[in-house]
């Protein structure tokens, strides 16, 4: 079973409305604040990228559909701050809170740290002892789009590309495995591949059979075909 964010291929969403480069970077001031508060909180180092993604993905389907983009960010941020014990629900309710633990004060993302912090990023390429099973040109089949450690857990295999035949067209070394990393399972790096799926394999009514959809998939998502 999937979660609401996994919408690739879904019907009924209407047309895309381009802006042709005219839209402001932040349409409203609060969009900018929501992004900045989320980024700054992330630098406290109390959760990783995959936990943060999962926090957004597990918003209820009603909230996820109703919330605008940055409402999802800010709501998921509140949830993860509470889940990680940085704030309490009572504090969220009253909007008053005691000073946080001194142990966190060194981690606070101060203005002086911004330029360096944003320009460094967080690469996910790692050394790994996991043996590379597939080579470029190999035929593979994707597994179910579900986290195999935890029911309802985070995964980066979309359901539209689950249990489908594809071909390995790229290999990227080993990367942190989100399915483990989002749930306290450590980085568990493993080989990451680009897999090409023919449109006609994914869709009953493909627009053009020679079109391809390319996904970056971890080795655990794949089996030989």
């Amino acid at each position: 079973m999937s979660r609401i964010h996994d919408m690739g291929g879904r019907f009924g969403d209407g047309v895309v409305i381009p802006d042709f480069g005219k839209e402001a970077v932040f349409e409203k001031d609060w969009h900018a604040r929501a992004l900045a508060v989320t980024v700054a909180s992330g630098f406290l180092g109390q959760w990783n990228l995959d936990e943060s993604r999962h926090s957004r993905e597990k918003l209820s389907p009603t909230d996820y559909s109703k919330f605008s983009y940055y409402e999802k960010w800010i709501s998921a941020l509140s949830d993860i701050l509470v889940a990680k014990g940085l704030i309490s629900v009572e504090e969220l309710q009253s909007l008053h809170g005691a000073r946080a633990l001194d142990s966190l004060s060194d981690r606070v993302f101060t203005a002086e740290k911004v330029a360096d912090g944003l320009s460094k990023g967080g690469p996910t390429l790692r050394d790994s002892a996991v043996v590379q099973l597939f080579r470029i040109g190999d035929s593979v089949k994707s597994k179910l789009a579900e986290n195999r450690f935890l029911s309802g857990g985070h995964t980066r295999l979309p359901k539209y590309a689950a249990q489908k035949a594809g071909k390995i067209v790229g290999f990227h070394g080993s990367h942190i495995f989100p399915d483990a990393h989002a749930h306290g399972g450590g980085e568990a790096p493993e080989p990451l591949y680009t897999v090409a799926f023919e449109a006609s394999t994914l869709w009953e009514h493909a627009e053009n059979p020679s079109d391809l959809v390319m996904l970056d998939l971890w080795q655990s998502y794949l089996e030989p075909l």
């Binding site: 508060v37 909180s41 701050l81 969220l92 809170g97 005691a98 966190l104 606070v108 203005a111």
Partner: peptide
């Protein structure tokens, strides 16, 4: 957004 920003500033968690 304002609420969460205010709370985090008052707790000393964001600058």
């Amino acid at each position: 957004v304002k609420a969460i920003e205010t709370l985090l500033i008052s707790k000393g968690l964001i600058d």
